[in-house]
Design a protein around this nucleic acid. Structure first.
Lengths: 202, 202, 202, 202
DNA sequence: GATGAATGAGTTTTCATTCAT
DNA sequence: TATGAATGAAAACTCATTCAT
């Protein structure tokens, strides 16, 4: 898009970082962790597999991240940041409220099921029941969920439906796609849009 | 046995004992496992905690269940059975299609967030990424999800929305309540109903 | 001494527990740990060596003791108890204050350098600088050091010497034998007695 | 340079700078190592903490010292040298044998518990059970302990007490102060003197 | 001289599982 | 049926050390 770097899409930048043994091992570890956590959850993933996936030894991870929990938090933070950016970009310039929500849902689903494992980590709903970790993750998500809240709040003014409940339903539904979406049929975007269209009133 | 309370058998008395530690250890283990799996997921839960929760020693579980996976499958099966029964009962006698769906959603949410830990296990969508376990659980759920599918299929005949996608969205949203519902505000039933009402066309 | 168990000395009982693969693995672990901690200190010892020494696998230790620290505390507690008993027995029936102190010192040195590794653990002065562990060990020793204090308090009534300081000096000197005593020359008893005789006034 | 403080070189000014981070990194590392070893023992201390304490990175230590053991030996050697010098200075010019011993004990205690962490390392009697390290440390101490031996040898000519045993008792007692001395009460000097006065015959 | 990153062997600890009693 | 002890593989994490820059 920018004339300085013609022809280089976002996804290409990501892929080249994941595939090649990049110079930046921290990033490699972050992405490998995203893949593992996303596939197996916090408890199911293990540091050796993350290390192998990142092309380092298990011990090396601890130079960059204090602990498994800290690694998860870092991955999650990066994912939330990227998601926030993706949704923000998707709704920029659109004014119709329902259309904005639909674009946001499409972007969310697209990002969640994209090749970048980083983003997928948002979905496996929550790794632990109590404790520090959960609190940290919740805090990270708050900004993102807030943004979705604003998209929804004005949509159903005079109805009996609580916008907060609806927001949580929508996000849960969109996150659920991570567990059943398979490439080949509808695109993630379409799937996300369908939910909003099913809800759309006007 | 005692003439004072005819018709009450010894074992019934024992089962309802104050300490609630029933004679049926298998059931105790099943419920304890449901609590632990539901709270921490398959990998996060461990057999010692399940055992402690059930009031037995870890080794004793293996008399009743072959393995941790088998225990999970058993819990899951019991939960799906109870859910199926709950939903079936909730929609019995109701004819209006949207009303049937609303009652089903209410029943699902109610059961999912009820005190009976057994049911909560349905939600953490899938404990492991691949392997036998996943296949078994999927099979168990199929009947249940089929039932939901039938409730939805006829609702949106002439629209651009794929009923299968909608079904998955609805179930994901309802299951998501497990992660955010807190007693005190709206009831689980209400929360479930809100989703359907937001979707309702007629 | 007791007619019920003629000819069985304390040390024989101890040795037979250490040598043979006794039924009581907990005791085996305790004694193996004492040997390792006593030889290498808390940080220098490792659980695998303790396990090997005890004839179990490393993981098995954790059935009996919660952690390395807990194991150390247990060893230390047992050692303090035995020391207390040994000194108490040594001074029983003796009335001359200096003689009581001399017997106590002899018993302390003897126990410290005896074959029972359990006792030797008392000496390596303190394994960690701060934290819980140190506090627990200090508490365990207090009773024992109190007993020594009582033996010393009345000895130097009208002099410029602080009995508390003297007690700490004496215990440090006696504990120091663990680092230089070698079998073959003077007995541990003798070495302990020499310190008290050098101090003795009357 | 500045006319106000003639004779003060630039490097001296820098060494005494407020942040006390001297130009001489080797010395910084030595002192940091003394602090860590003294507080946690050889095994309990780790190179990263030493490095952090010295204001360098862990890898940098290895420019100055070959290994952790070499670092310990260097610290120990420096400490023994300073101790030897301190005691030698304390007894210079004094002729009464008991007084000489008392001054030596006072100097030893004072140095051991002084702010200069370097000296404290002498006390934790021996960091490892066997091996090269122990032999090197023993050799370093020999000179120092010899000096103490000479102070004691002539004191108790006609008694039943072995001067060598007494020397070891005295040194152990004095070293023990490292573990219980707390600023605020008696000075280290006083504490050291009390031991000798308790032993003094004439 | 010094550093930042990485290593790899080693540490403590966990945990599903087994099995004699 | 149930237990208590033990197992052994694997987990998370540590740490002295190396080395290109």
């Amino acid at each position: 898009m920018t004339p300085e770097r013609p022809g280089v899409t976002m996804s290409e930048v990501m892929r080249s970082a994941a595939d090649s043994r990049s110079k930046n091992k921290r990033q490699d570890i972050l992405e490998a962790a995203a893949r593992q956590f996303s596939a197996s959850g916090f408890h199911g993933a293990n540091m050796r597999d993350v290390a192998a996936d990142a092309g380092v030894l298990a011990g090396s991870i601890y130079y960059h991240f204090e602990s498994k929990e800290a690694l998860y938090v870092a991955v999650h933070a990066a994912a939330v940041d990227m998601m926030t950016e993706a949704v923000r970009a998707a709704i920029a310039g659109i004014t119709d409220p329902w259309q904005r929500l639909e674009e946001a849902a499409a972007a969310h689903c697209e990002a969640l099921n994209s090749e970048s494992a980083l983003l997928g980590v948002i979905s496996p709903v929550f790794p632990v029941s109590g404790g520090d970790l959960r609190a940290q993750l919740t805090a990270q998500r708050d900004v993102y969920e807030q943004m979705f809240g604003e998209l929804i709040d004005g949509l159903l003014p005079d109805e009996e439906i609580d916008p907060k409940v609806l927001r949580l339903h929508i996000l849960a539904a969109l996150n659920g796609t991570k567990f059943w979406y398979k490439p080949g049929g509808k695109t993630p975007s379409d799937i996300g849009r369908q939910l909003i269209r099913a809800l759309r009133r006007t």
